[in-house]
Write a protein that binds this DNA or RNA. Structure first.
Length: 461
RNA sequence: GGCGCCUUAGCCAAGCGGUAAGGCACGAGUCUGCAAAACUCUGAUGAUCGGUCCGACUCCGAUAGGCGCCUCCA
């Protein structure tokens, strides 16, 4: 079935045509590992996961690269700022390499917890300095650069057009730019490719330009080229990458080989918190760990994300997280219930479910609509293994790990077990007063008591 | 100063030029000694104003509010 993606390059939803139907090539801008990922960051990787799973559900094989930025990026083009890695290193009294490996590890753990399907290739910038150097040399050879005492700049005025993604153009920006024009740059949109390292700079490499380090945007172009070639199918990233990072990647690629590196550019919009930006100063930056402490397992956050489309902003509220938490439990319960059912579902019905689901996910990853199909199945009054298996199939895209879900029989402390037994006796004797008293005690100790048709059920809260 | 986006019921939200998916909450009911759970039922005329059209939430314009980018940021 046809797949449609919204393409930032053309600003339209387009039919997806792979370069090579045997293998889809994707590049995703990954994290800069200088601190814990917050849930806004993680939305981007849930999107990436979603894209992977949808393509695979459609039968495609993937070659997907994600970079890990462990080279410090300067705070600005002018060489007067500290870079993020160095800043973090100072903060924690470690060297930048220790910072990188610590937070890379934390990041990988987070995406595992979210059940995110990892790209085939995870490439660290520091391990690819050589390819970046080659890349720059070629751009220089092709005549797209100029150099100052300490920096090699990309000359954006040499391009036929700069700003194809974001509709920016050099002239307009000059007019009302808020940013100071850096000394040495010819055009405001020019950017550093290769920078001579000051004496005290910690991360630097020997190169044709002396001890130096790469500019901000180079790593993605170079590693994309290394693993995927001059042209690949899809490039993903956050909204914020559109105006600078991805424009510059496009510029670099044009300077390197004359064309835009990817056919489809897909960007995730931001997660907002209570209608506004998430920021440290507002004290609303949450990590997975923060959510866990408030009682939301990581997959709840996954569920929450499926209420909206990736390319619109989503508003994070704890009310919505409660919704997601309950929903996830209901879906799991429904799955188990269907698993134990034996009713027949017609082929026509089954086919309709499959078609609707596929149509939704292939329509630019429309997860809200896909979920409506899932709920339709989950709430089907006929209880059927066929439906359970269908949910399992859809779970290849959803990623809730239903297959491994089973109702956990909580290991209850002896104290609680005794209370439960006493309550059972009280109930047999129809001593409701005692029964309620015991329920209150159990509840006070943090356990929830339910009297179902199959007897008493006690769950830790 | 420039570029762009958003505004749909209490909350998260989808789609669509022809009279608004889904989830959760709320409310009502069934069940139960009660409670919880489960199940059933139940809600919006689309920020405001104006225009185009036989017909607009869906297109155009204005107003209000919000968000993002132009500087590291998913």
């Amino acid at each position: 079935m046809d797949i449609y993606f919204y393409n930032t390059l053309t600003k339209k939803k387009e039919l997806f045509k792979p370069l090579d139907p045997k293998e889809i090539k994707i590049y995703s801008c990954g994290p800069t590992v200088y601190y814990y990922a917050h849930i806004g960051n993680l939305r981007a990787y849930l999107f990436m996961d979603n894209l992977r799973r949808v393509l695979r559900y459609n039968g495609y094989k993937l070659k997907h690269v994600m970079n890990i930025t462990d080279v410090g990026h300067l705070v600005s083009d002018a060489d007067d700022g500290e870079d993020k890695m160095v800043k973090a290193a100072k903060r924690e009294n470690k060297n930048p390499y220790e910072i990188a490996s610590f937070y890379l590890d934390a990041f990988l753990k987070d995406i595992d917890k979210l059940n995110i399907d990892k790209p085939e290739i995870i490439a660290r910038a520091t391990e690819n300095i050589d390819i970046m150097e080659q890349y720059v040399k070629k751009i220089i050879e092709n005549g797209y650069t100029y150099q100052t005492d300490d920096t090699i700049y990309f000359d954006t005025s040499k391009l036929d057009k700069y700003g194809v993604l974001s509709n920016r153009n050099i002239e307009e920006q000059k007019a009302g730019a808020r940013v100071e024009f850096d000394n040495g740059k010819k055009n405001i949109s020019d950017f550093a490719l290769w920078i001579k390292a000051p004496e005290n700079h910690l991360m630097k490499w020997d190169s044709f330009f002396g001890k130096a380090y790469p500019g901000w945007h180079l790593e993605c172009s170079a590693m994309g080229y290394k693993y995927l070639g001059e042209k690949f199918d899809i490039h993903t990233g956050g909204m914020d990458h559109i105006p600078v990072h991805h424009e510059n990647e496009i510029a670099q690629s044009k300077g390197f080989c004359g064309h835009i590196p990817a056919n489809y550019w897909m960007h995730v919009d931001f997660l907002q918190v209570n209608g506004g930006k998430m920021s440290k100063s507002l004290n609303n930056l949450y990590t997975l760990e923060d959510l866990k402490q408030r009682g939301y397992e990581p997959l709840v956050y996954r569920m929450f994300n499926f209420t909206s489309n990736y390319k619109t902003p989503i508003n994070f509220t704890f009310e919505a997280m409660d919704t997601a938490k309950i929903s996830l439990n209901k879906l799991r319960e429904a799955y188990l219930t269907h698993m134990n059912g034996n009713e027949e579902i017609s082929d026509i019905q089954m086919q309709e479910y499959e078609n609707k689901f596929l149509e939704a996910i292939n329509d630019n990853l429309n997860m809200p609509v896909a979920m409506s199909v899932v709920w339709d199945i989950a709430k089907n009054p006929k209880k059927s293994k066929q439906l359970a298996n269908l949910l399992l199939k859809f779970d290849e895209v959803l990623g809730f790990d239903l297959k491994n879900y089973e109702k956990k029989e909580e290991e209850l402390p002896q104290e609680i077990i005794e209370l439960i037994n006493n309550r059972k006796i009280a109930r047999l004797e129809k001593n409701w007063k005692e029964s309620d008293r015991l329920r209150d005690i159990i509840s006070q100790k943090g356990y929830e008591v339910k009297d179902t048709q199959n007897g008493m059920e006690v769950i830790k809260r």
